[in-house]
Amino acid sequence: MTQISIFEILGPIMVGPSSSHTAGAVRIGLAARKILGEVPKKANIYFHGSFATTYWGHRTDIAIIAGLLGMEVDDPSIPNAKHLACQQGLVFDFHSIDLGEYHPNSVKLILEGSENRVEIIGSSIGGGRIKISSLDGFDIDCDGSYSVLIVKHRDEPGIIAEITEALATHRVNIAFLEVSRKQRGSTALLVAQTDNPITEKIVATVKELYGVLQVRSFPSFF
């Protein structure tokens, strides 16, 4: 289990009204923007559980948009996020969904930018803390405390070793490493959470490796 910072409990300093439904939602939006790696142009937002039934009252809708626009949880412009989104050319749509066993405060985001598209499930787990639980259909577990390298690759021997070696060569220490796949011999996903930032050079190196299909990286969220 990741250790909890006391300022996640006595904090964050934020704009109301709800740490889970407002601040957590801003952070999920912000995390999603960072995972996409560019300014989102189109966002389809699917609310699950408590988010689906109470989003309007807690302004979860406005909060997610604020995060997608790059705002932090204490940004005084949060109440105007929808208006600002229209000005900045972000098209968004809200839906309800039953995601099954996910945390009751969860949202699925399908984001499109000029180049990338990403599908994320994020959960707001209390007091403004969040967790990204799924990325492009793969289960991940990422709370934003670390830099993250995500590699989609062929499910073949030796590829994971090459990726971790590339990190080692650049003196990047891995805190957590997860590998998963949809089925044997198809596409697999590697998620490395690291103590050191993932530089563009590392991303370029990993992209060149045999069997690597797609590489994403993003810094710690907070």
Binding site: V15, P17, G127
Partner: peptide, 14 residues
Amino acid sequence: NASLGRIVACPTAG
């Protein structure tokens, strides 16, 4: 908090 003011969540905003 209810008026979208700036507060410290401790442990939550509510």
